[in-house]
């Protein structure tokens, strides 16, 4: 039996690493991957609590999250390719025209 606290701790660590990736990296590909990692950390928490309560609702939610992640990656990478066409770079700091 795996203690729920350890599952949550692992989930928190992974989420923090993902957040760190979004904050410190400027490569858009790696930033998108970090977002995926954060979604995965959330999934882990869902699974842990589903096991804890003996209720599969968490599993259904994880399936939904996986679908959302797939959609997000498709659109995100589409934006990335469009950006690369216009700027020849995937560095987020090269796409700062809307920033003031």
């Amino acid at each position: 039996m795996i203690p729920i606290a350890h599952v949550i701790a692992l989930s928190a660590v992974l989420f923090a690493i993902g957040a760190l990736g979004v904050l410190v990296r400027r490569n858009l590909v790696v930033m998108l991957m970090s977002i995926e990692l954060m979604l995965n950390a959330a999934n882990l928490a869902f699974i842990g609590f589903a096991r804890h309560h003996g209720d599969e609702t968490g599993h259904v939610f994880v399936l939904m999250v996986i679908v959302v992640a797939a959609a997000e990656v498709a659109v995100g990478l589409g934006i990335l390719i469009a950006l690369f066409r216009n700027r020849a770079s995937v560095d987020v700091e090269d796409a700062s025209l809307l920033k003031w």
Binding site: N40, N43, L44, I47, G48, H59, V62
Partner: peptide
Amino acid sequence: LGGVHVLLEAYFVGALQ
């Protein structure tokens, strides 16, 4: 993480992961 899911008895979700 797929392995962790299986350990937490989420077999289907682990495979899909």
